[in-house]
Amino acid sequence: MLLQLNDIFKWVNSGGQRIFLLKDINLEVEEGEFISVMGPSGSGKSTLLNVIGMLDTFDEGEYNFLDESVHSLKEKHRSNLYKQYIGFVFQSYHLLDELTVKENLEMPLIYKKIKGSERKAMVADMLDRFNIVGKKDLFPAQLSGGQQQLVGVARALIANPKLILADEPTGNLNSTQGEEIMELFKQLNDEGVTIIQVTHSEKNAEYGSRIINLLDGRMV
């Protein structure tokens, strides 16, 4: 088992009132699964993904990732954990504007303190695998949305994560571009990467092996 959420609650206090963002979430994810999270806007999909990605905290419940209990970990260990095992893909790509494609790919490796020569090899591999060798010296602004998201996925993958979290990865793309990304996810999943994606599209959700529906922070 890759991860397990038990009775997770998350809330914020606003004007003396407790507003629940996540209510009683129970979820087990096995290695190699491909899960799609669906639900109306504001239902807590991003919040759930952030909790799984350890970017956000929760107020009640247990979260185990591999053999670690995330809820009792210190911030620093948590960030080491996700640095090592999790890759993120965003709806608006979030590439670093002033860096080239190659440099964007290199960034997570630098932060993981991987040696220069090794970094070069890994970046070259990834460029090759995603067929973007020709674009390696371009800046994000010079790419189309689909190409930018391709780089985004490549960047998420470069450090060999076990889990990819993608929050509406096709939200800013047209349908052909979206399909390409989905095909890519499918392929990665076949290679053994676990994927959790948030999507609004039934069609994209079909790529997954399981669908989770959220409504007002509760799984339905």
């Binding site: 979030h94 997570p108 932060y111």
Partner: peptide, 16 residues
């Protein structure tokens, strides 16, 4: 701020 957020998600630490 956004860029910093991205870098953090990519694993940058405070000192960096």
């Amino acid at each position: 701020v956004k860029e910093i957020g991205v870098r953090k998600v990519l694993g940058a630490n405070l000192a960096q």
